[in-house]
Design a protein around this nucleic acid. Structure first.
Lengths: 207, 207
DNA sequence: TATTTAATACCGACTAGTCTGTTTGTCAAG
DNA sequence: CTTGACAAACAGACTAGTCGGTATTAAATA
């Protein structure tokens, strides 16, 4: 993997990712990817032993970048406050800030795209996708558990259920944001979820 | 369209729907569908003029059945109560009851599957999908507007935002329910959303 | 009543093109 | 003079779609 080779590999992955989110994995031919990158069959099979390996690479590339962002926001939130409630809120606001910076409607989540064509992928890739989604949910769950431990919620909720909820909201916002080409839908959803947390956990006036 | 012809057409549509939700539209070949139904090319092209027409038929078949269910629940809820809050709650409980009856993890939403491969479809089909998602959201929006008009919410929310939220939650629950093969995830999400509505709209003890 | 006519529903071989993957070859750098 | 990075022609399987044929039914007609 020389300097140039790695960048070619990465160019293939990024071009393929965009195409896969538009046409699905099966709907994206290698020729499509090669047309997009200006490369040839020879180049592709020099870097990937099969289309299936490309699928794996796209998922890994996407998921790792995604995880890094979330880990960063989490660390930043934990640095800015000691309070579990504030930590969750800051975390979500950092996400919203990021969403605000985007100039286009969402392209979609690669993991969800794979879930919606899971039959096309090797079991190992399906497992990987499931694992990343689970990791993501666990990240949230820990935050909510700290929150619930610190303050009694105003309704009987579990950390797991809240984590599932925000994960669902984000995934759903991808689908609807794409369908309606709405750049701000996901941000509104995050805000809405913060309202819920607010009602659940913010100290009442009575206190 | 004789008796038998209609049922064959319908068999093709249903088999294709299942395959499309597993492999994506491009990942589902006509041969796959014909293998599943035990039919041949001749039969297929007797009923559909192209694969694109099948795509349209799958979407319409799915969306219409879906809409009918929701209209039924809505009518039933409106019959059972005059109170906008109760109407929404009953509606959601009817949905949860239906979900409870399912014995398998969700297969996915055809509309979302199409959104995640929108580049494969004719603009008319994309428009149709968008329209059905919008219809669905409007159904909710009306209910929430009646609710907001009847009682002031405990946080500044709009009917539109709440409609977007439940739509997102359901779509996201499809994705996660499929990924984790969790039959009950969507039901838990609906319950969670009811908790939110409860905190927003249920008369406080003070009243 | 017997027979043509027509329409629907379906079969399955065939075509033209696309798909993934292979192979052989080129070229530059170390 | 070998190795990494890529080009380009090629192979074989698979794809959507076509076409000529058959079975069945029912109406029209003689």
């Amino acid at each position: 993997m020389s300097e140039k080779g790695l960048s070619t590999r990465h160019r293939i992955i990024k071009a393929a990712e965009t195409l896969v989110l538009k046409h699905g994995f099966a709907g994206t031919s290698l020729d499509d990817v090669l047309r997009e990158t200006g490369l040839t069959k020879g180049a592709f099979f020099h870097h990937f032993k099969s289309k299936a390996e490309l699928a794996k690479a796209i998922a890994e590339n996407y998921a790792e970048a995604d995880m890094k962002m979330f880990v960063d926001w989490s660390a930043q939130a934990d640095r800015l406050s000691d309070d579990p409630y504030e930590r969750v809120m800051i975390f979500l606001k950092l996400l919203e800030e990021f969403l605000d910076g985007l100039t286009e409607a969402p392209q979609g989540c690669v993991l969800a795209a794979y879930v919606y064509a899971s039959g096309m992928f090797e079991p190992a890739v399906r497992e990987y996708v499931r694992g990343r989604l689970d990791w993501w949910q666990c990240l949230y769950e820990k935050k909510f558990q700290a929150l619930i431990d610190a303050r009694p919620p105003a309704a009987p909720v579990t950390a797991r259920a809240l984590a599932e909820m925000i994960a669902s909201i984000i995934q759903g916002a991808f689908v609807l944001g794409m369908a309606f080409k709405d750049r701000e839908l996901m941000k509104r959803q995050s805000q809405q979820f913060r309202h819920y947390l607010d009602l659940l956990f913010r100290p009442r006036a009575a206190a």
